[in-house]
Computed example of a mutant assay.
Amino acid sequence: MASTSQEHQLDSLPYYDTPLPELQPVINSLIAVELRSLLPKTPSSNPTNLSHLPPPRPLPSPDEHPLLASELARVESKRAPRTGEGLDTARYAMPFPSEDEQDSVEAWERAYRSSLAQLEHQRLRTMNGTLLQQFGANKWRVENFALENAIKRVEGEGEEVKGVVEDVNRRRKADQEKAGETLNRLEKRWTELVSGTLQLEIGCGVLEEELVGLRARHAELQQRLAASAQ
């Protein structure tokens, strides 16, 4: 039973009742109140039905990250990145000393160090590729197996909850249909009693009219007897 601001008392048997048009606004208002309690009040707030989940991780603040702040300012101003602001691709190239630096030992040392760094990078990539080829398949199988088990567990829990919900709905339907049969029987009995009462009232009215007529006839006869006696 639910009470509303319009002081309506609702005894709902949805598996038995026929919706009444005059109560539809009240029903809609109750649904709206329930939805407002579930949905977030503001875009930044969390829905109450997700309160059991951990809160989301906060986004990084530009005040704590100067690089992020400068990049956001550049994007907001729609300014194209200047030279040196984007990704540094020079480290992935194989530089050679320019013609003016062909005789510079320092230039050749820089090129040599860059070559060593890139060779080391390629060696690491090759090693990672070899390790991935050797162990990656098994790792993916293990991860997939764990994910499949998690999916099966969640699906099983979902089916269990679904079964509980269906069982509750079946019991609700059975209880409401039983209550509906009782209401039908009581309504039929009430109709019979009301009909009997109306018939009694009609019969009483007829008898009262007959009684009035008999009393008038009796008075008339008494007057005649009195007149004949004189």
Rank of each mutant, 00 (worst) to 15 (best):
L124F: 05
R125S: 07
T126S: 09
T126R: 05
M127S: 07
N128Q: 02
N128R: 06
G129K: 04
G129C: 10
T130V: 14
L131C: 08
L131M: 13
L132K: 01
Q134M: 08
A137F: 11
A137W: 01
N138V: 15
K139G: 12
V142Q: 06
V142N: 07
V142Y: 14
E143D: 03
N144V: 12
F145C: 13
A146Y: 05
A146R: 08
L147Y: 02
A150R: 12
A150P: 00
A150K: 13
I151L: 14
K152C: 05
K152V: 10
E155D: 14
E155Y: 09
E155S: 10
G156P: 00
G156R: 07
G156K: 03
E159S: 05
K162P: 00
K162M: 07
G163D: 11
G163E: 09
V164I: 15
V165F: 04
E166T: 05
E166V: 10
E166M: 11
D167N: 08
V168G: 03
V168N: 03
N169K: 03
R171K: 12
K173S: 02
A174N: 02
A174V: 09
D175Y: 07
K178D: 13
K178P: 01
K178G: 12
K178N: 11
A179T: 07
E181V: 08
E181I: 11
T182A: 13
T182F: 09
L183R: 00
N184W: 09
N184L: 14
E187R: 08
R189C: 09
E192V: 04
L193H: 02
V194I: 15
Q199P: 00
L200I: 06
L200F: 08
E201W: 01
E201I: 13
I202M: 11
G203I: 06
C204L: 15
L207I: 13
E209D: 08
E210W: 07
L211S: 09
L211A: 14
V212S: 10
G213E: 11
L214F: 05
A216V: 10
A216C: 06
R217W: 12
R217G: 03
